[in-house]
Design a protein around this nucleic acid. Structure first.
Length: 211
DNA sequence: AAAACGGGGGC
DNA sequence: GCCCCAGTTTT
């Protein structure tokens, strides 16, 4: 699988950059919680509004759940998320001196933080080597034939074997954008895909379908 | 293992 | 009008 590095380099030149460029770990964490089962444009809009009003853990801790819920309303799951966001802010302010922990086990203790969210915070917020597997990474890795897996955990383990470590932190952003623009869940745009020649899915569907 | 949370957008 | 979407938590 020497191709993996080549494929990633092609994607890096072709795929648009991930639009959420904050490197503030707390903002990454809260924005990622908001993003769960939510379209990303909506996520950025409401996250920016939220941080404009309550930028620091201490600010969000002191905000009311109703106030938070109102600001993130369009993202859906707003009551649940508002409660989690307030509690996460409180824990970080009171138990971690206002700093998001850069450790997977500590992150997983936070409400609303599962494996995917924790890995995104580590990768994007701290620049650590962590592979965050969401539906895009899972789908695309299987389509390409990099893995043949059923669960995200399994995908994460297998990807760690075949993706060079230097790409771990950015593979999620890259594949999410690739998945949005080209390798969509339904009707992937294989005609214009820059890596179709390396794709198992494309080879097996090359004759039968184009749309 | 399945249900529940949820508004917005694509078709 | 139906179905899916940067998942996590509860049943």
């Amino acid at each position: 699988m020497q191709n993996v590095e080549k494929i990633i380099e092609i994607l890096k030149k072709t795929v648009p950059e991930h639009p959420y460029r904050s490197h503030n770990p707390f903002h990454i964490l809260i924005a990622t919680i908001i993003s769960q089962r939510t379209k990303d444009e909506v996520t950025y809009t409401v996250a920016n509004k939220l941080f404009a009003k309550f930028p620091r853990p201490k600010d969000l801790k002191n905000a009311s759940e109703e106030e938070i819920a109102k600001l993130i309303y369009p993202a859906g799951f707003y009551r649940q998320k508002a409660k989690k966001i307030k509690e996460v802010a409180r824990i970080i302010d009171e138990e971690y001196e206002g700093k998001v922990p850069g450790d997977i086990d500590e992150l997983l203790k936070l409400p609303g933080v599962g494996r995917k969210t924790a890995n995104i915070v580590l990768a994007r917020g701290f620049g650590k080597k962590a592979i965050a597997v969401d539906v895009h990474v899972h789908r695309i890795s299987n389509r390409l034939g990099w893995v043949h897996t059923r669960t995200p955990e399994e995908t994460e383990r297998e990807l760690m074997k075949i993706i060079p470590k230097k790409y771990w932190g950015e593979i999620n952003s890259l594949l999410v954008m690739f998945g949005r623009t080209i390798c969509r869940p339904v009707k992937p745009k294989c005609e214009i895909c820059p890596i179709k020649e390396y794709c198992e899915y494309y080879r097996s569907h090359a004759n039968s379908q184009s749309s």
